[in-house]
């Protein structure tokens, strides 16, 4: 059973096709990553899932039914560009956002105070938001996202602009919510983060979904022909070797793609025969980044590395 199914979503702004017939599924209890470079269509997709934008075509199915206000009430959303009312007080802010989700009363107040305690903000209940440091404002924003105990947590580029402490804090919240069985969906252009945190991913490029599935399955599927190595010596002779399809330099490691599955052992033999000192040879690993490059092209990969 899927928690959420996205079916053939499309959205254009004038002549620009921001999202083009995108379909993917989000399983129950997973951490789901929507991955792509800047401008690929991640935020537009998320906004359509949240019913903030109306899709030109397609639909989003929540546990078998079309999404509507009911979904909004079950979602905690942290947009990429975050914002709070500067003149409002801390506790007041939390209660207001909970009220918009239909949660009021003493339980919410109690829970808000618990969260503030946990995030070292308990002495700031009556402070104005504008008097908090940027880091503390981010903490407050996290609390508004989860205070109403959402079943779905949608985070758009959650780690952009966070300091290391808040990055860890947010990861902590994400893992905690996963344990509670919530569905977490986040978009990112940071392949590393996605790789470390997600169980399932969808890759989006130029508005099109180019990959969707469980991360481990995808990896094993793509790793059959891919090897990542660390070495000393010269491997330029591989460029024209008949079993090698492509060499990609990722800085710390080099990825080599062979033409047929099962040629990886032969590759190791060739390296040794040519006096290359192999420090690490991983025939069972492929980074998300490599998969992305393979699917979206080297140019796109470079762009992802640079952003």
């Amino acid at each position: 059973m899927y928690a959420l199914e996205v079916k053939n979503l499309s959205k254009s702004f004038g002549t620009l096709k921001a999202v083009d017939n995108a379909s993917f599924t989000v399983p129950e209890g997973s951490i789901f990553g929507l991955i792509g470079r800047n401008g690929a269509g991640k935020t537009t997709t998320i906004r359509m899932m949240m019913n903030i934008y109306m899709p030109d075509g397609g639909e989003v199915i929540l546990r078998g039914a079309k999404v509507g206000q009911e979904f909004k009430n079950k979602v905690g959303y942290l947009p990429e560009e975050r914002g709070l009312y500067k003149k409002m007080r801390v506790l007041e802010t939390l209660l207001y956002f909970a009220e918009l989700k239909g949660k009021t009363g003493r339980t919410v107040t109690k829970k808000a105070k618990e969260y503030l305690e946990r995030f070292d903000l308990s002495n700031r209940l009556q402070s104005k938001v504008e008097d908090l440091s940027k880091g503390n404002q981010q903490k407050l924003q996290f609390i508004t996202t989860v205070l109403h105990d959402p079943e779905f947590i949608i985070l758009d580029e959650p780690f952009s602009g966070l300091d290391p402490i808040n990055t860890n804090l947010l990861k902590e919240i994400i893992l905690e919510k996963k344990k509670e069985g919530k569905v977490i969906i986040f978009s990112t252009h940071l392949m590393d983060f996605a790789e470390k945190m997600c169980d399932h991913i969808a890759m989006i490029d130029l508005g099109k979904i180019i990959l969707n599935g469980s991360l481990s399955e995808l990896k094993s599927k793509f790793s059959q022909k891919n090897v990542s190595i660390n070495y000393e010596g010269d491997i330029s002779f591989l460029q024209k070797h008949p079993i090698v399809e492509k060499i990609s330099d990722f800085g710390n490691t080099t990825g080599i793609k062979v033409k047929e599955p099962g040629q990886t052992q032969e590759l190791l033999k060739i390296l040794v025969q040519n006096n290359v000192v192999v420090k690490k040879f991983d025939a069972n690993d492929i980074s998300l980044h490599e998969i992305f490059v393979e699917l979206a092209g080297k140019e796109a990969g470079q762009e992802v590395l640079n952003v």
Binding site: I52, Y77, E81, R82, G83, Y85, K86, F97, L100
Partner: peptide
């Protein structure tokens, strides 16, 4: 202000 401070997107995740 709501538009500039980007709070509107948070609001729109709860209300239409």
């Amino acid at each position: 202000d709501e538009k500039q401070s980007k709070i509107v997107e948070v609001l729109l995740s709860s209300v239409s």
